[in-house]
């Protein structure tokens, strides 16, 4: 039983990493007043191109470059339509998500004669766990935090830095004002489009890291739709966390926890039930939403329209 809890916590930290990256970056875009629906596509893109570039060049460095470049391009497409041309963010996001579920299988079929899998384990060593000797001596926390991969440690540093950026720097304040009252920002000469673009680029880099964590530190390969709705889960986390960095990340950890729980439970049951268990993370989101949203709905006293 003790082992079970230790493992559960270890996997919570491990599986939360991609969610945390995506969430902390997404907070900026969301807070700047743009609904970034394309987070999902960005993670998927990062996974695919990191593996693709690694296989083509035989060098993981170019894989990393590929992940960042592709995410920046995806977010640039999104930004061009949504920020530049003021198109409907949800529709554009949806279109990009669809596009990125179609591009990888096409390229795989055309060049690798495979419909759904691209292995890169020859080039990528997924065993990147770092052993920190003194951590082992601490009960519970030790096994939970020790032997994690570099990006898992990095994500907490990124969260700290971006939280400081969010609350303490000009840019962070501008992001908040842009989302809260765009006119007040523009009245003092703040270029709100520029703020949104920078937010999108931060989000792109975070999504790239999120994808890299999946391919370079967990699987070593690309399989179709391996992002598994993580982008959408992060959107839920950001929304539940009222677009605040730390609060949103806590929700991401909750979603990471249920993911770990599902993984742990599935090793105890027959394969048939395993598939049903996979709905646990998504069911959790619905339950979290019911809890957070009904409390808002119960409080509102307006019968017809909600006030701003």
């Amino acid at each position: 039983m003790f082992d079970f809890i230790e493992n559960l916590l270890y996997y919570t930290v491990k599986l939360s990493t991609p969610l945390l990256f995506c969430t902390i970056g997404g907070v900026f875009v969301q807070r700047a007043g743009t609904m970034n629906f394309a987070l999902e596509a960005a993670i998927n893109t990062s996974c695919f191109f990191s593996v693709l570039f690694t296989v083509i060049t035989g060098n993981t460095f170019w894989g990393i470059v590929g992940a960042f470049l592709s995410c920046i391009i995806i977010n640039a497409i999104f930004g061009t339509f949504v920020v530049r041309f003021k198109a409907n963010a949800v529709l554009i996001g949806l279109a990009i998500n669809m596009l990125m579920t179609a591009v990888p299988p096409y390229l795989l079929q055309a060049f690798f004669d495979s419909r759904g899998l691209l292995m890169a384990t020859d080039f990528i060593d997924v065993n990147k766990a770092i052993n920190i000797p003194f951590l082992d001596k601490i009960p519970i926390l030790g096994p939970m935090l020790n032997n994690q991969t570099p990006l898992t440690y990095l994500v907490y540093l990124v969260i700290i830095i971006l939280t400081i950026v969010y609350y303490k720097t000009k840019f962070g304040v501008y992001v908040q004002v842009t989302g809260e009252n765009q006119q007040s920002a523009e009245a003092v000469g703040i270029n709100t489009d520029k703020i949104k673009w920078i937010a999108l680029m931060i989000s792109a880099c975070c999504c790239a890291l999120s994808g890299l964590n999946l391919t370079f530190e967990q699987t070593g390969s690309y399989s179709l739709n391996m992002s598994a709705a993580r982008g959408l889960i992060c959107l839920a986390a950001i929304n539940c966390g009222s677009r605040r960095p730390v609060k949103s990340c806590l929700y991401a950890l909750i979603f990471g926890f249920v993911r770990a729980l599902q993984l742990m439970l599935s090793s105890f049951v027959s394969p048939n039930i395993t598939l049903i268990l996979e709905i646990i993370p998504y069911l959790t989101i619905i339950i979290v939403f019911i809890i957070t949203e009904t409390s808002v709905a119960r409080k509102t006293t307006m019968r017809f329209f909600r006030e701003e």
Binding site: V173, Q176, V177, Q183, V188
Partner: peptide
Amino acid sequence: KLSPSLTVYENILLGIE
């Protein structure tokens, strides 16, 4: 054109922090 969640001085210096 003010941001309600910011303070008086933050609003005055908005854009020229």
